[in-house]
């Protein structure tokens, strides 16, 4: 052993000062930083980012080409195409990332080891959440940024504010799906179950809810305001309506419910969509925190 080994020899003379355990924010930032570094090194991050950028570019080029490559019509088509891409890719990415966060650590024994340190369960949960949120933000910015940059270079004008709105709303959608993924992760015993459940949740949100709403509207003869209220229960629908609204596009394209929303709420729609999205971010995460505080990390 080296001379440094001597440092191992003597214990502290007394107890460490009260409160030597770092504060909540310090621990959250430490864990988030590690989670972020781990995520950007991971294959899922690279794969999703590349797929997002390539598909986004393809959609943008095709949309722009179809309308002659410039003007508002081109931008509208491009935006619509990108919204649909975000609706498919971002929820899947965020759900699976969140689902793996706690369950895989529990399976590997990492969670137990982490919680044996002077950190609380809430700090671990929030640290992981913010770290993954950072990775998702990077992925969205890289994906949409690449699209915007290439289109701008080719002279197929994009409105910077439009791209920023879309990126911001995509990030909010990612946060809500990440919360749901983390909740699934705290409930599942095994990482494979958590990821499987998250994929099922994604399928449900993307396909079943859309079709279910249509079927319900016909079968139950739902009133238009009921249909709009039900749409708000799905964060993907909220994102879609909010994105279209933010892009100054009419919600008429969504049918009678969209028309009703525009006429009834006008500019208040931003607030309504914002509150719904915040609820989708906060509520699953809060439930996840409660579950994690009560479950064994082993």
């Amino acid at each position: 052993m080296t001379s440094a080994a001597l440092r191992l020899g003597a214990a502290s003379d007394g107890l460490p000062a009260e409160g030597r355990a770092p504060g909540m924010m310090t621990n959250i930032v430490t864990i988030a930083g590690r989670e972020l570094r781990e995520s950007v090194r991971a294959r899922w991050f690279v794969l999703y980012t590349v797929a997002f950028a390539v598909l986004g570019l393809a959609i943008s080029m095709v949309s722009a080409a179809a309308t002659g490559g410039s003007g508002l019509a081109s931008f509208g088509r491009t935006t619509a195409g990108l919204i649909n891409l975000v609706l498919l890719v971002v929820p899947l990415m965020a759900l699976t990332a969140g689902a793996g966060a706690i369950a895989s650590d529990r399976e590997r024994g990492m969670l137990q080891y982490l919680l044996a340190q002077p950190v609380s369960r809430l700090e671990v949960l929030l640290g992981k959440y913010f770290g993954l949120a950072g990775a998702l933000l990077a992925c969205i910015c890289l994906g949409l940024g690449t699209c915007a940059a290439v289109l701008a270079l080719k002279g197929m004008g994009t409105k910077p504010s439009g791209v920023l709105w879309l990126a911001g709303l995509s990030f909010l959608l990612a946060l809500s799906m990440l919360s749901l993924g983390i909740l699934i992760s705290t409930l599942a015993r095994r990482a494979s179950v958590a990821v499987g459940t998250s994929v099922f949740a994604w399928l449900t949100l993307v396909f079943v809810t859309d079709l279910g709403l249509m079927a319900g509207a016909i079968a139950l003869r739902l009133r238009i305001e009921q249909l709009f209220a039900l749409s708000l229960a799905n964060p993907l629908q909220v994102f879609k309506m909010w994105s279209l609204h933010a892009a100054d596009a009419s919600l008429d394209v969504l049918g009678p419910a969209g028309l009703y929303a525009t006429e009834e709420f006008g500019n208040r729609l931003h607030w309504i969509f914002g509150v719904c999205m915040m609820a989708w971010i906060v509520v699953p995460l809060a439930i996840g925190a409660v579950v994690m505080s009560r479950r064994s990390p082993v």
């Binding site: 590997r108 024994g109 002077p118 609380s120």
Partner: peptide, 17 residues
């Protein structure tokens, strides 16, 4: 947190990334 700040823990197998 305070209790664990006084403890060094070595598990049976190190489960780190």
């Amino acid at each position: 947190k305070r209790a664990r700040s006084l403890i060094g823990y070595v598990p049976q197998e190190l489960g780190l990334y």
